[in-house]
């Protein structure tokens, strides 16, 4: 409503109604279709919990915070629900939230890929101390291309949001990020690309930092950047803190972190950058090499169209390992 017309109604009580001259919309909530709600839990209650999960996911993503399954249990699944119904409730809530995220926000929750380090480096585990405990000790099984969602190993207890919009749309969104955010994202992309393209799949600190000097990133800047990248799971840091070694010989290695695999898991993006860097020397052979490297580090591929993903979503088939805390069943 244009401001100029507002004055006719000069009474004070329009203040509350009028939320900062909002484009006010009062939607009529659509009746919930209870999907599989034989659990006896009110559909409206499930809907409320799903909305809460959506908010949690969206606000978490702003600070690149991951969402932990245990935390969903703690803060969203209402205490009034009987302990033996919690798992079923959680599943329903997750499915509903996933639907909403995809259809409204163009995003989806996916399990954070496990933090893992290239094998040839982790063989010497006695010399290597992982900076963060490696959560996933599950055997690795190749996920089927069709993404049937039957693969139980593809389940984590930590989630992050992934964009499901087509690439061109995502680019428009990216253009509108703040300058600092764009700069950080660009640097993250370049560092991850360098690590990815390194034959070993991981890099020693001084090697990596040397590559960045031409880009104007000096050592102090590198340190700040790498700690930010580590804390947001773009890279995983591993150091050999073998106490027997002299301090000077202790080294730090970096490999791709879970978030990089999700966010940059788009072959096209990597290839495009490589072809730009290599210019005329880029050829089909290199292209194949890049493909095999991407495969080797198990990069996640670009999101499939939302209608191709089963509604059950990923990560809810294997919930039994969640510790709910109340063991009175």
């Amino acid at each position: 409503m244009p401001k100029s017309k507002r004055r006719e109604d000069d009474s004070n009580d329009d203040r509350d109604r009028d939320y900062n001259h909002t484009t006010t919309v009062s939607p009529s909530p659509e009746p919930m279709k209870p999907s599989d709600t034989d659990s006896g839990i009110d559909a409206a209650e499930l809907d409320r919990m799903a909305n809460q999960l959506v908010r949690m996911a969206l606000f978490g993503e702003l600070t690149r915070t991951t969402i932990k399954k245990a935390n969903i249990y703690k803060t969203i699944i209402s205490d009034s629900i009987a302990a033996n119904m919690k798992l079923k409730t959680y599943r329903n809530v997750f499915v509903m939230a996933q639907k909403k995220l995809r259809s409204i926000f163009g995003m989806e929750l996916i399990p954070l890929p496990p933090k893992e380090f290239p094998e040839d480096l982790s063989i010497n585990t006695t010399h290597l101390a992982t900076t963060r405990s490696n959560r996933s000790k599950r055997p690795k099984r190749q996920k089927t291309e069709s993404g049937e969602g039957q693969d139980e190993d593809d389940v984590g207890d930590v989630y992050m949001l992934r964009n499901t919009l087509p690439l061109e749309y995502r680019q428009v969104v990216a253009e509108n990020r703040s300058v600092d955010e764009q700069e950080f994202y660009g640097q993250a992309f370049i560092i991850c690309s360098i690590i990815l393209l390194h034959p070993k799949g991981y890099m020693e600190r001084s090697d990596l930092s040397r590559y960045l000097i031409p880009l104007g990133i000096d050592l102090p800047m590198f340190d700040t950047l790498i700690s930010k990248l580590t804390s947001h799971s773009y890279v995983v840091q591993q150091s050999n803190n073998d106490p027997g070694r002299a301090i000077q010989k202790r080294r730090q290695y970096y490999s791709l972190g879970p978030r990089a695999k999700v966010e940059f898991g788009d072959n096209q993006g990597f290839k495009e950058i490589c072809s730009k860097i290599l210019g005329e020397t880029f050829n089909p052979k290199i292209s194949t090499q890049i493909d095999s490297r991407l495969k080797a580090v198990k990069m996640l591929h670009s999101p499939v169209a939302s209608n191709q993903i089963s509604d059950v979503g990923v990560g809810i088939d294997n919930l039994e390992d969640v510790e709910v805390g109340s063991g009175d069943d």
Binding site: F105, G106, L165, Y169, V172, V173
Partner: peptide, 8 residues
């Protein structure tokens, strides 16, 4: 969706 993401 993309318009909304831009706002986010």
């Amino acid at each position: 969706r993309a318009f909304l993401q831009t706002f986010m």
